[in-house]
Amino acid sequence: MKFQALLTVGLIMVAGAANAQDLPAGYPADYSSLVAKAKAEGSLLIYTNLSQDNVGPVITAFNKAYPDIKVESLEMGPSEAFTRYRAEEGTGVSSADILIANTIVDWTSAVKEGLVQDYQSPEIASLPDWSHPAPGLYTFSTDPMVTIYNKMTVPENLRADTMEGLLTNVTTHPDVFGGKVGTYDGRYAFGGALNYAFVERHGDQAWKWFEEAGPSIKPGGGAGAMIERTLSGELSAAYFVSAPVVWSKMADGLDAIIDWNFPKDGTVVFPRGIGITAKPNHPAAATVFLAFVLSHTGQEAVGDGKLTPYRPGLEAKGALSYSLDEVAKAVGGEKNLIIINYDPKMIDDNAAFTARWGKAFNM
Rank of each mutant, 00 (worst) to 15 (best):
D304W: 03
N281Q: 10
P24Q: 00
V170N: 06
T91F: 08
V331L: 14
A160H: 11
W130C: 02
L99D: 01
D53A: 15
G16E: 03
V93T: 15
F190G: 11
Y322M: 11
S232M: 10
Y188S: 09
E41P: 12
S248E: 02
G313T: 02
A29F: 12
V269G: 00
A243T: 13
D252K: 15
A20C: 01
P174G: 07
K37M: 08
W130Y: 09
Q299M: 04
E315C: 00
L23T: 04
K37E: 12
T267L: 07
G178C: 12
F270S: 13
I46K: 02
R229H: 11
V170Q: 09
G224T: 10
I276N: 06
I274T: 10
G224W: 07
L290W: 01
Q299I: 00
N54H: 08
A223Y: 07
W357G: 00
G191Y: 07
T230E: 11
K335T: 13
F190N: 10
A125W: 03
T308E: 09
P128L: 08
N102Y: 11
L290G: 03
S51Q: 04
D129M: 13
T172E: 14
K2H: 13
A328M: 04
V331S: 13
G165T: 09
M1H: 06
G42T: 02
A278I: 02
F177P: 09
N54W: 08
F3H: 09
S51Y: 05
R86T: 07
R201M: 14
V35R: 07
V199N: 09
Y239K: 04
P263R: 06
G214S: 09
A213D: 13
I59F: 11
